[in-house]
Structures are given as C-alpha cells and as structure tokens.
Nucleic acid binder design. Structure first.
Length: 352
DNA sequence: GCCATTTGACCTTG
DNA sequence: CAAGGTCAAATGGC
C-alpha cells in the first residue's frame, strides 16, 4: 500500500523532471535558432513551464520530507512516557509541532516613525493584510503589544506574523517585528499593483483605486531602522526582492500556486537550514541577485529591474542594517503619488 | 450571518 | 517559573 504510493510519487517526479528537461530543450532550440517563430512570449511561456515543473517536483519532495518529519515526530511522541503525551490530541500535537519550529522562523524588527520631518511618508500598511489575534501587556513597556497574523493564514496557510509595539520613549515610533515570510498571494498582488503604478506614471494616467493593493489601514510612516534577529545574513530579507516568477500565459490559479510553492518552499528551507545553510552563505553579492528569469523581458521588465536595483541601493544606503523590503519597496513606489489617507486612527492600531 | 477584534486562558521558551 | 506568544470563545460591526 505504502509502497504503491511511493512508487506513484516517484513516477510523478520522474514525469515532471522529464517534462522539464524537454521544455528546457525546446527553449534552448528557440534561443539558439532565434528564428522569427521563437517569439519572446514563447520563450517566456517555456521558462514558466520549466519553472512550474521544477516547482512541482520540489513541492512533492517537500511534502515527502514533511511526511517523514511527521513520522519521526510521532515516533518520538510514542516514546514519550509522560502522562501528557497519552492524552495529547491532534490539536495539541499540531501546536507542539508548530511551536518547535517557531524559533527557527526568521525574524526582523523595524522601527517606523509615524511622522517624518516633511510630513507624512511611508506606510505602516506594508501591502499585506493582517488580522489581529492577540494583545499582550509587555513587562516594562507602557504600551501593549499587538499580535497580527496574515489574513490568509487559514485559506492559504500563510504563516507570516508580526507584532506591533509603540516605543516607550517616543510614542511616535513603532517597533514592528515580522516573523516568517508570506506564502500567500498577496506578494503577487503587491507586485502587480507596483507594476500598475509604474505603468501609470509612465503613461501619465490617473490612479484607479481598483489597482491599489488591498489595504486595511492606511497609516503614513517613515521607517527608521531595522534589526534582524535569527537572521545570520541579510539574505532572508533581501530575498524579498527576488520576485517570484509569474506566468503570463498560465491561469491565474496556476500563477498563484507558483508563488505559493516558491515562498512556501523558501520558508521550509529557511526552517530547515536556518542554522547551517544560511549561516554559511554570507556573500554580500548574493544579496543583490535578481534573477533575470524573474523579470519580464519586455522593456517594462527592464525598467522594473533598473528600478529595483535603485531601490536596493537606496535601502542599503539609508539603513545601517536592513529594512523590510516589503515595506520599503511599497513605500518607495508610493513616493511618486502620495495618497495621504490621514488622519488615521491611532487607537485602532494601539488600542489599550 | 460573516468576519474582525477583544480578551482571558493556555502553552512554549529561556 | 516568569514572560512572551498563541488559541479560541465572546463580542461587536457591517
């Protein structure tokens, strides 16, 4: 029974790999021949298919490894003679499993100022939608800490969380600690919204509110600095700049799945290798890797690439350590057309 | 009725 | 064991 499942998985893996190889061959022929028939769209389509193929394979491997982990854990649970393990239900088991990984999840802190010298800049809204799931009085802190998790946690299994706390010394400064990366499709919407914005600027068109990313609470902020915890390198943060590949030809759903699998796998790898693998790759040059295949080959794509490079430089210069690219990218892209949704509701974010 | 927030209890971590 | 973090029932708004 179990052997058949493994065999089927193996066959699926092989099929995907073979398909990927064939597609790569086709792409190679297209590139080498550079005939009129090998349009840019065709090449992009092939690249997307190849990437999709390999993502599927990696996802399968990921699932298999997760199953193995679960088996190992349940095995350990069986060995546990404590009374609690005997009554531990599925929920408790799941909770324990999640919590054990908690410390391995990458975490970084940002300090943002509600007001800047010039007025209002930036945005506490980092482009993602969050749901508050708790609030806690912190020892020695005047203000309670609010706990937020991704709105799509249940729907898409996105495990990104953050907690927000107002500074004791300066109430206009807020510390936002992010934990985990988004595996939901919000990242894609962010990307699309950014593209739309740039496109609008180029075409001198008016803003269409429908093109704005989903925003729960628009609060204007200026990031001050960011600290990293559990991050041996800046790679965790800068990898946000590596836009997941998106399929222009594939369906929306497939597109979403691609991003989902990308980020989910990165999270998984982060958890697995945060202690060993990541700490070894400290090369700064890798921080600025923006794979060509992740960008459109159109003129606009090149524009995006240039823009992103500029943004990275700006972020590096303005912050001694690093900053949340999600916030910065959004903020910088917003600078062209401020929509100052002010006044905002303080009590909503820092209710006590 | 659905969804987000609040809040006390519970769990994990150091 | 204390403090931080999360869960989940209760509550409120739309």
């Amino acid at each position: 029974m179990e052997g058949n499942i493994i065999k089927n998985e193996y066959i699926s893996l092989m099929n995907e790999l073979i398909q990927g190889k064939e597609l790569a061959k086709q792409l190679c022929n297209h590139v080498v021949s550079s005939s009129p028939s090998s349009s840019l769209e065709t090449n992009e389509f092939l690249i997307d298919k190849i990437l999709s193929s390999y993502e599927k394979v990696l996802n399968m491997l990921n699932l298999v490894s997760n199953v193995e982990d679960t088996k190992t854990n349940s095995g350990n649970m069986m060995m546990d003679e404590s009374p609690k393990s005997e009554v531990m239900d599925n929920n408790e088991f799941r909770h324990k499993d999640v919590s054990k990984k908690r410390k391995n999840i990458p975490r970084w802190t940002e300090q943002v100022n509600i007001f800047s010298r010039t007025g209002l800049e930036g945005s506490l809204d980092d482009g993602y939608s969050w749901r508050k799931y708790g609030q806690k009085d912190i020892l020695g802190a005047k203000f309670p800490r609010g706990y937020y998790r991704c709105t799509y946690r249940n729907v898409q299994g996105c495990l990104a969380t953050k907690h927000v706390q107002r500074s004791d010394e300066d109430p206009t400064i807020i510390e936002v600690t992010y934990r985990g990366r988004h595996t939901c499709t919000q990242a894609k919407h962010l990307k699309k919204a950014s593209k739309v914005k740039i496109g609008l600027e180029e075409n001198q068109l008016h803003n269409d509110p429908k093109n704005e990313p989903q925003q729960e609470k628009m609060v204007q902020f200026q990031p001050l600095e960011a600290n990293t915890e559990n991050l041996d390198t800046k790679e965790d943060i800068f990898s946000w700049f590596c836009f997941p590949s998106s399929s222009n030809n594939g369906s929306e759903n497939e597109d979403n799945n691609n991003i989902l699998s990308n980020t989910m796998m990165e999270n998984h790898l982060m958890e697995r290798f945060s202690d060993s693998f990541i700490s070894q790759s400290t090369s700064e040059s890798s921080l600025f890797c923006l794979p060509q295949c992740h960008l459109n080959n159109t003129g606009f794509g090149q524009h995006m690439q240039t823009l992103e490079s500029d943004i990275i430089e700006i972020v590096c210069e303005s912050n001694s350590v690093t900053n949340s690219p999600a916030l910065d990218l959004d903020m910088l892209l917003e600078k062209g057309d401020f929509d100052t949704d002010f006044p905002f509701n303080f009590s909503e974010y820092f209710s006590s």
